[in-house]
Computed example of a mutant assay.
Amino acid sequence: MSVIAYERSPHARDHDRPSREAAEEAVRTLIKWAGDDPGREGLIDTPARVARAFEDWFSGYGEDAEAVLSRTFEEVEGYDDIVLMRDIRLESYCEHHMAPIIGKAHIAYLPDGKVVGISKLARLVDIFGKRLQVQEKMTAQIADTLERVLKPKGVAIMVEAEHQCMSTRGVHKHGVDTMTTRFTGVFKDDPALESRFFKLIGR
């Protein structure tokens, strides 16, 4: 079973997916509920634009994270140290308010005979980011997928992001980042490796 099928709600089957016309009508309803007229000049094309934006913002539902990592390389001349990408831009939306989550992810793994193209780590962040998310769950999904597909000696990930549901509504606290981590294998068992990870990402 693919990650996509597992992560999606059992109620979100393709045959239940509303049409684009229904999605656009829902946007018109929200515009009316907000107190404006969806028929006025500045808003008349907004429902179609929102539907297209949703296709981009939530494109992660249509991608298989395991497939992205499926092509690996073993010709690494015996390389056996940490592979790390830091400051990977993250753009997501919280599942509670559908407000933006903007931040960055730092991902490291210790290979066990095979590596993956570095761009695939950034793709992995996009796939899980472009879904309705809770940051804690997203952090675990990224780490667990790397662990399951690459079978490395260990994985380390840190995500730091500002949640617009907290900065633009509610308590209105700006500039506050939420930080989440996940460590597996040697990164979890060896405090020196965990410390090295934080040093490499500048923490």
Results as ranks from 00 to 15, higher is better:
Ala22Leu: 02
Ile127Met: 13
Met158Leu: 14
Arg49Thr: 00
Ala34Phe: 14
Ser19Met: 04
Thr180Leu: 02
Lys104Asp: 11
Glu162Asp: 12
Gly117Tyr: 03
Ile44Gln: 03
Gly202Tyr: 08
Gln141Asn: 14
Ala65Ile: 10
Glu7Gln: 06
Lys114Met: 03
Pro38Ser: 08
Phe73Leu: 05
Pro10Ser: 15
Ala26Trp: 00
Glu91Ala: 13
Thr168Ala: 13
Tyr61Thr: 07
Asp16Ile: 02
Ile142Tyr: 12
Ile82Asn: 01
Arg86Leu: 11
Trp33Cys: 10
Lys120His: 06
Gln141His: 11
Phe58Pro: 11
Leu150Ser: 10
Met85Arg: 07
Thr145Trp: 02
Glu194Asp: 05
Arg28Met: 04
Ala156Arg: 13
Glu147Leu: 09
Val186Cys: 03
Pro10Ile: 15
Asp177Met: 10
Val159Thr: 10
Asp14Ser: 10
Thr72Ser: 13
Glu21Leu: 04
Glu95His: 03
Leu110Val: 12
Arg196Leu: 11
Gly175Tyr: 12
Pro111Glu: 05
Leu110Trp: 06
Phe187Leu: 08
Trp33Arg: 15
Ala51Arg: 15
Ala105His: 01
Ile102Trp: 04
Pro10Ala: 14
Met166Gly: 12
Lys120Glu: 04
His11Leu: 15
Val125Thr: 14
Lys199Cys: 00
Trp33Pro: 01
Gln164Pro: 02
Ile107Ser: 11
Asp126Val: 05
Arg203Tyr: 04
Asp112Gln: 06
Thr184Tyr: 11
Lys104Cys: 13
Leu30Gln: 07
Asp36Ala: 12
Cys94Ala: 09
Trp57Asp: 00
Ile201Trp: 10
Phe187Cys: 09
Met138Asn: 11
Asp14Gly: 01
Arg52Leu: 00
Glu55Arg: 06
Ala51Tyr: 15
Ile118Cys: 03
Val3Ile: 07
Asp37Met: 01
His106Gln: 05
Lys173Val: 15
Lys173Leu: 13
